[in-house]
Amino acid sequence: MEETPGDESALLASLRRGEPAAFEALVRAYGGRLLSVSRRFLRNEEDARDAVQDAFISVFKSIDRFEGNARLSTWLHRIVVNAALMKLRTKSRNPEEAIDDLLPQFDEASHHVQEVQEWRESGDAAVERRETREIVRAAIEKLPESYRAVLMLRDIEEMDTEGTATLLGITENAVKIRLHRARQALRTLLNPHFGGAPHLGGAPHFRGAA
């Protein structure tokens, strides 16, 4: 399925000549992958498909502006992420949804209120199981959208802070704050699945150690 750069340059040349068959070939070659990217951001299948359509329309209009210094697949990926985020933004009525309940709590002395247990199993091993991956994806979907978008862009799409800020129309500082909160909230959501290490012999209570 992966196009080689050679295939890409031939396809790109045909696209620039405005050959309709080339555009159809592009849609067929890359569409499936773009749909799966779009689905990461948009749970509703119709929205995910609409974003793919918006992305290809945008590609069709701007193919002349593609400079060829990036892979075509990378460029398409960015365009569909952008289209999905646009849709997410228009659908998100409350972009600053509360996330506080999922953040760690501290007492007056600034210590952890709840016991922080060691996770019982390396997440890296657990995530090799399909069931675990589904749990993790479902937990990410539970995050408020404005936080989920930042987490998806920074941690999953591995976009940098500046690019994420530009794409979402927020400051870099807001990206940093939301990312940290999103990760903390996700940790809270995953804790019941990975936490609860049985401490043989009874570990000392954490406050005694702090």
Partner: peptide, 14 residues
């Protein structure tokens, strides 16, 4: 540790 694992499993899940 669990924060770092959270980031890693998030990536791995996708």
């Amino acid at each position: 540790k669990s924060y770092q694992q959270t980031v890693r499993v998030g990536k791995a899940a996708f």
